[in-house]
């Protein structure tokens, strides 16, 4: 565990050293190249920003208005058919929509049930096993001008559902 953690810290500096040493040996203007490349970052960010804004607005209003709670209430009975405890439904839905929001839901779960309860363990697993599908999809397609992303959204949400059910079933089998 510690080794993997160490690798994740050391990787970036190591990469930097290799690039700089090779650059020096090949006698290229390393500094000029860096500046030239870094300037390209700006155009990408300028293209991403409107998408990020649109997604964050929709998600925030979805949460604040109480529409999210309503949605959870509607979905709960359906999900319960799969032998899933209702308490883990909010984090399951939030995970696909908003990373920060899901983290807040996870804190609430820990506060109420404790991290070592069945609900706490399942929720932790759901949190760790997926990324924020909606956000990834919106940002990754934002700079290239692709509008038709419906299929990708379905596949992404389907994968989230799979991860969700596996997380629930693993812990139900173990406890």
């Amino acid at each position: 565990m510690k080794i993997i953690e160490y690798i994740s810290y050391v990787m970036i500096p190591l990469l930097l050293i290799i690039i700089l040493i090779v650059g020096e040996r090949k006698k290229v203007h390393v500094y000029d190249l860096f500046i030239e490349g870094a300037a390209e970052g700006f155009s990408t960010i300028a293209k991403i920003f409107p998408t990020v804004l649109a997604v964050i607005i929709a998600i925030n209003i979805f949460k604040i208005s109480g529409a999210m709670d309503l949605f959870v209430k509607l979905v709960r009975p359906i999900i319960s058919l799969f032998n899933v405890p209702g308490e883990v439904v909010p984090i399951g839905i939030m995970r696909s929509v908003s990373g920060g929001g899901a983290l807040a839901v996870l804190s609430d779960v820990f506060k109420e049930y404790g991290p070592d309860s069945l609900v706490g363990r399942i929720s932790s697993t759901i949190m760790g096993s997926s990324d924020t599908t909606l956000y990834v999809l919106a940002i990754y397609t934002s700079t290239i001008g692709i509008k038709k992303t419906k299929n990708a959204l379905f596949i992404g949400l389907f994968c989230d559902l799979v991860a969700f059910l596996v997380a629930v079933w693993i812990w139900q089998a173990m406890v």
Binding site: K26, F34, E36, A38, A39, G41
Partner: peptide, 15 residues
């Protein structure tokens, strides 16, 4: 993203 683009520019030119 800027850092990455900068580094990759060097990496690209040096092979």
């Amino acid at each position: 993203i800027s850092l990455w683009c900068g580094l990759m520019k060097i990496a690209e030119k040096t092979g």
